[in-house]
Design a protein around this nucleic acid. Structure first.
Lengths: 198, 198
DNA sequence: ATAACATTACTAACACTGTTAGTTTTTAAA
DNA sequence: TTTAAAAACTAACAGTGTTAGTAATGTTAT
């Protein structure tokens, strides 16, 4: 083993922990170096800049999120799967707000072919769940964006400090939104199932 | 007039322009000082820190957004108002992505009574439009959060670089989501209008 | 084992960042 | 015109990401 055993994996893992602890905004390369028992400049033998770290942590976070979603929906289908996925999504964002932010920041960091692939893979579970409904391909794709927007929007706003009006329960609000999504899915199914028989 | 005529308004206005030009992440107090023909340290006679600037710019942005929405929905009602508001919202985010971010960042900056008031005022138009539908107060409040989540979620994701899959039109996707919201509003109206007659 | 090579860590420095202390200039009021 | 307040200045500190150049380390081949 060379040097102090720094690997891309160890760096990404340590960085993700540091980001989770101190917050994405308070993260610094120098503090990461300290935690790895290395001078900051030495890190540049393994990375080309702080963007590399964000990329790596983002990928890691994508995978974790997807794992959590996968686990949540396993064995479930349709409405139950949508509910389970939605709540797992929310739990992940609440428990890992800063990691979640690294996911959101990924596209502007890099639109390379392989990273795009990873991002797509991170949405696989969500895609699978939406595909449980019998809809035309195009409608599935359109609804998928609606669904993602709802999940991201709600959780991002909540994390940002919105939805703090105490007299309206936030759990109720989330469930109300999810049930709305489910209702829509069923309507679309009816609508396009009927037209299929033409 | 004292000094170089720096006022909170001028500072906020100049800062907002600088943020729009260079991006929120590349904004710096020092560059703001240059643009105001002042040394950076001198700014601290007028502000207590960079958070003050973010607060001021955020407030300014909230007002601009609300003005844009107000203008868009003037004279319209219900479905037409929802559509107009949604597209005005999107246009604002696309034209002022960094100002929009300052709005989202407001709550974590400050939860003072007066700033909370300003934030609420910024949502007034949206609230007004949703209130055009005849729904129980609680349902209105719940749907309001769903609607906000959709608008924010979609636009935040798009600005972040998502929704780049070329074969699915992004305009179509947005309209699909909005029509979904409208459909839901009408259903809720039916549902609670019927139960009203019990 | 030892010489050659690549890898990796180091020190020192640069150009930035936000912010504070202390001092001087400018402006308005008595 | 003196006095007091307001607002500008200089200088500095501690922090950031990053680079160049150098020393130490590990691996491989002779």
């Amino acid at each position: 083993m060379k040097g102090k055993g720094l690997s891309p994996e160890l760096i990404a893992d340590t960085a993700s922990r540091l980001i989770s602890e101190k917050g994405l905004d308070n993260f610094s390369v120098r503090e990461l170096a300290v935690r790895l028992n290395v001078k900051a400049a030495s890190l540049y033998n393994h990375i080309s800049g702080v963007e590399d770290i964000n990329r790596a942590v983002g990928q890691l976070a994508v995978n974790r999120l997807n794992e959590a979603l996968e686990k949540a929906v396993s064995g479930l289908s349709r409405d139950e799967a949508v509910r389970a996925l939605s709540h797992a999504y929310r739990r992940f964002v609440k428990e890992n707000p800063d990691l979640y932010r690294t996911i959101i920041g990924l596209p502007l960091l890099d639109d390379s072919e392989d990273l795009l692939e990873i991002r797509k893979l991170g949405l696989e579970t969500m895609r699978k769940v939406v595909a449980m409904y019998d809809l035309p391909e195009k409608i599935t794709a359109l609804f998928f964006r609606t669904f993602r927007s709802s999940l991201h929007g709600f959780n991002a706003l909540e994390t940002a400090g919105y939805f703090s009006q105490a007299d309206i329960d936030i759990e109720d609000s989330y469930n109300f939104m999810i049930e709305g999504c489910i209702t829509r899915l069923r309507e679309l199914e009816k609508e396009y199932c009927a037209s299929k028989k033409d």
